[in-house]
């Protein structure tokens, strides 16, 4: 009983921690999609953030500089994505897929250039890492901040109207393209913080594929929350808990003493995602002008 109690709190805390990268990515996705740019490139944004944070932290020895590096790299990848979708008018989904594939291929190359290997960045010392709880609270605090930004600042008005009605926005002199460009750059920066969480707070290095589909899970959390910045905290925690449960369950035997294959347990968060998407897609309303080009 005692042991169960302990593991329950453990599970909860672990779930909250693991919801952090999801929340950053979901908020990034929110900024991008509320402005009308469908964003399945969150996965790539996360990886870029993770790599740049770890690389810069290792090279500078200072995680704060690393975090700034992640923000800069996130802005860069956001800029690239925005140029392709908003200005070159490429299909958002195709471009998102392409960008994800590009990132998966490009990062090992950069890794090789800087560190001589393709697999991962060198490990960081404990004092070179940031606190997971610090980043968790940053993510949670960012949600109401983004709500305020969307509803109380002129640019937030323009961001929402660009994602809802292109013609109406233009008729009022709002530059939909410029608004979307800025929104996607911000999305890249916010999402990159989630990547930094993975490599310099929760982990101690960047390794290939370390985002493990979290960009897509964040997208599911965003849909489930109806693209709203406050409910998205809760939906990200839900998926964070699913991720934590998967880890905790691996160390528990079944009642008869046998164990489930690890692979089955690892599927858990993705099955939750699938169930949620099947059940909720179409039930919440996306921005009306999402994926439409100006």
């Amino acid at each position: 009983m005692n042991e169960f109690h302990f593991s329950f709190v453990d599970l909860l805390l672990s779930g909250l921690r693991l919801s952090t990268p999801l929340l950053f990515a979901a908020l990034g996705g929110l900024l991008s999609e509320r402005a009308g740019v469908a964003n399945i490139a969150l996965e790539g944004f996360l990886l870029v953030g993770a790599f740049s944070a770890a690389a810069v932290t290792y090279l500078s020895g200072n995680p704060w500089i690393g975090l700034s590096g992640a923000l800069a790299a996130g802005a860069m990848i956001g800029l690239i994505f925005a140029m392709l979708t908003v200005y070159a008018k490429a299909d958002h989904i195709v471009m998102g897929t392409a960008l994800n594939l590009f990132v998966v291929g490009a990062l090992p190359l950069f890794n090789k250039i800087f560190f001589g290997v393709t697999g991962s960045t060198p490990s960081l010392e404990l004092d070179q890492r940031l606190s997971v709880w610090f980043l968790f609270f940053v993510a949670v605090a960012l949600s109401p901040l983004i709500w305020f930004f969307l509803h109380k600042v002129p640019f937030g008005y323009h961001l929402r109207s660009s994602g809802e009605n292109i013609e109406a926005s233009k008729s009022l002199g709002i530059s939909v393209k410029r608004t979307r460009l800025i929104a996607v750059i911000l999305a890249g920066m916010v999402t990159a913080l989630g990547g930094a969480f993975l490599s310099i707070a929760h982990g101690s290095q960047f390794s290939r594929g370390m985002s493990a589909g979290r960009g897509f899970i964040a997208l599911a959390a965003l849909i489930l929350a109806g693209w709203r910045p406050i409910p998205v905290i809760l939906t990200c925690i839900l998926f964070g808990l699913a991720d934590a449960a998967q880890i905790v369950l691996q160390s528990y035997p079944l009642p008869d003493g046998s164990t489930l294959p690890v692979q089955w347990i690892q599927m858990f968060p993705y099955i939750v995602t699938l169930v949620v998407l099947v059940g909720f897609v179409g039930k919440t309303e996306p921005p009306q002008a999402i994926a439409k080009n100006d």
Binding site: P154, Y157, H158, R160, S161, E164, N165, A168, L172
Partner: peptide
């Protein structure tokens, strides 16, 4: 075809693009 943003409020549509501000806040 009206140039209104359906999922914004009457007030928000009223000022959209010409928002009055105090210190950058609407």
């Amino acid at each position: 075809h009206f140039m209104l943003v359906e999922r914004m409020t009457v007030l928000e549509n009223f000022i959209l693009g010409s928002e009055p501000t105090i210190n950058g806040i609407v």
